[in-house]
């Protein structure tokens, strides 16, 4: 009896979280006049909404933009984060703890304070409407540095010493020795960073005006807010589906890593 209640509560819970997505998917394939009455699946399937959306907004291009931006940022965060994290955890130098405290401090600094000046900076550098403007301010991430610092601390000193004897430079130590031994940290930082930059909207809204350079969430936001969907609801939902698709697909395959990564990012705070 208890079990039945337990399972039905869990089931209701998961339906609450899943059903809206199912509805959205169904609605995006429904004929326009059916959407407002749709409960589950439409009576007939049509790709009309998708075709119209592809006609109206350069969503393919936006996908590529998002891909370029998110991958470059992720890559940069991994490289720079592990460089700084390594220096902070395994090397002795003056000012080390100062830098560490600065990093901790910036983590607590709300972005609202730097938003306007950063925008002006980007304008003055002439990086409005460029990937540079989207990418550069995000190449460094305090959380990533801290996570690498923590993880590198757990790696045995012998490994590093052995590499030094073999004549490895510090960079080689980081990327050849530490990286292969830090896969969980790399995966965690990678997933968090990629997801955060993939889903970022506010900054692209501010920096990018050229439709050809817009990221996917930005384009879909403007499409949903602006008039270009021409009041065709299905088209908006189709855009939302396309926007959700890549991350959901990645999630289905790497579910465990996603959940672990997000959980550990929360724990570190």
């Amino acid at each position: 009896m208890k079990k039945i209640i337990l399972y039905s509560v869990l089931l209701i819970g998961s339906i609450t979280f899943l059903y809206p997505f199912v509805w959205m998917l169904g609605a995006s394939f429904a004929p326009e006049n059916e959407i407002s009455n749709l409960v589950f699946l439409p009576s007939s399937f049509t790709f009309g909404s998708y075709l119209q959306m592809f006609e109206k907004i350069p969503i393919g291009k936006a996908f590529i933009n998002s891909m370029i931006v998110a991958s470059t940022i992720t890559f940069g965060v991994l490289v720079f984060g592990s460089m700084v994290g390594y220096a902070l955890s395994r090397l002795e130098f003056k000012g080390r703890s100062l830098i560490f405290y600065i990093i901790i401090f910036t983590m607590t600094l709300p972005f609202q304070i730097t938003l306007i000046p950063q925008y002006i900076l980007i304008v003055k550098f002439g990086w409005i409407d460029s990937y540079t403007g989207l990418i550069l301010p995000y190449l460094m991430n305090a959380l990533a540095i801290i996570m690498f610092r923590q993880y590198f601390k757990t790696i045995p000193q012998d490994l590093i010493d052995a590499a030094r004897i073999d004549g490895c430079g510090e960079l080689k130590i980081i990327f050849r020795i530490l990286w292969p031994n830090s896969i969980p940290a790399l995966v965690t930082v990678g997933i968090i960073t990629f997801m955060a930059s993939w889903n970022e909207v506010l900054w692209p809204l501010i920096v990018i005006r050229d439709e050809n350079l817009m990221t996917m969430p930005q384009l879909v936001t403007l499409f949903a807010v602006g008039g270009r969907a021409e009041s065709q609801l299905g088209v908006k939902l189709a855009a939302a589906v396309i926007l959700a698709l890549p991350i959901v697909a990645a999630y289905v395959f790497f579910q465990k890593y996603f959940i672990q990564s997000m959980a550990s990012s929360g724990m570190k705070e």
Binding site: I68, T72, S130, Y131, I135, L213
Partner: peptide
């Protein structure tokens, strides 16, 4: 990647 992106 950066250079490509800057040359707009």
């Amino acid at each position: 990647a950066l250079v490509v992106s800057c040359s707009s």
